[in-house]
Design a binder for these strands. Structure first.
Lengths: 190, 190
DNA sequence: CAATTCTCGTTAGCTGCCTAACTATTCGCC
DNA sequence: GGCGAATAGTTAGGCAGCTAACGAGAATTG
């Protein structure tokens, strides 16, 4: 998530001071938020850099993983539709078209028309794609393990628990704070 | 961070099972990693959606914040160079050129040549930019507070502490796991 | 059955982000 | 003082993400 976030996170005292000017500013909440985005971004960059060594992007890697997970689960060679891939990876279908284009160009994936529904396509991992994935995965796993090494096992459990709380809140569509303007509120009500 | 990550995080048992096939896979580390990226992404999307209501992107917002923070700290109207902005926001200078282009087009920021060094430019918040920022900030702060509401004050401290540990590890350039191929290792050694 | 409606995949056009190369200017050093 | 090295900003080209609009095909429904 190449997200533009302040690189040097503000110290807590600064947040505290700013909260005097802005009563809406919750210093501890802001601190957590900034740390969360910053850390997520940095972790992302670490694996992104590794994947780049194999000439593959995070997006492409996710598609390969989704396809491969599908294989593993259902015997063998079960292809997926672009729409299914988009849902699983949390990206729009238009974006998935581009990703599959790139992967197909590189020979890691194959497109074929669905025999039963002529609107649909199927996307399938090629053997080249599977080989590439198997070459990447060990180091990828090592990287994640290395990244989390500073955390003890109980700390990991705690971290997951707290993150899950935030994730649950982020997923709520109801009860969000007011979107600031009456116009936005009207439009935003979908 | 529009990052393509699996939307439905794998259950722990699946990770455990996969670790039998891949000894490098550390289930708890992987679980933390996936949760971190997913939660960071979701939190990012929440504020991004809010900023979009004000016709501004996360990138543009970060630039305005950096400029405004500069104002606050140093009396008044202290401009910053594009390079300084790039450093503060963790983006390349080429990217900053584009961001400032957009902000200048929208009249939120003004470029002027530096009088002492003709290579340099200065970027300054316009009054329109400052007004816009002040209009956005209250709801922005409310949003962060709302997002973190499920966490108690001690939980927030804990979360920040654990995230900081991971962030520190991610920042280490030494001792990363082997990049899988000798070629990559040679190149990666910069 | 015909007409509407829905779904799937793609295209077009925008933004943000990157790297690499380029220009202009300043700095360091002999 | 003049020449090479370093630095500031931009440009060019690429990828990934988005929305909106489209055409082809399937499903629903009168």
């Amino acid at each position: 998530m190449p997200l533009l976030m302040l690189k040097d996170l503000p110290r807590y005292e600064c947040l505290l001071e700013a909260s005097r000017e802005f009563p809406e500013l919750d210093p501890s909440a802001t601190e957590v938020f900034l740390n969360l985005l910053r850390t997520g971004d940095e972790a992302f960059r670490v694996v992104e850099a590794h994947l780049a060594q194999h000439d593959i992007t995070q997006g492409g890697f996710s598609v390969l993983m989704a396809l491969w997970g599908q294989c593993q689960r259902a015997g063998r060679e079960l292809p997926l539709s672009p729409a299914g891939l988009a849902d699983r990876t949390g990206v729009t279908r238009a974006t998935m078209t581009g990703l599959v284009d790139t992967l197909e160009r590189d020979g890691l994936v194959r497109r074929a028309p669905d025999p039963t529904d002529r609107r649909m396509m199927t996307v399938q991992l090629t053997s080249r794609g599977e080989r590439k994935l198997l070459k990447i995965l060990p180091a990828h796993f090592r990287q994640m393990a290395w990244l989390m090494e500073p955390l003890s096992e109980p700390e990991r459990k705690t971290l997951v628990r707290l993150l899950t709380k935030v994730l649950g809140r982020a997923g709520e569509t109801e009860g969000r704070p007011a979107p600031a303007t009456a116009l936005a509120a009207t439009i935003g009500a979908r």
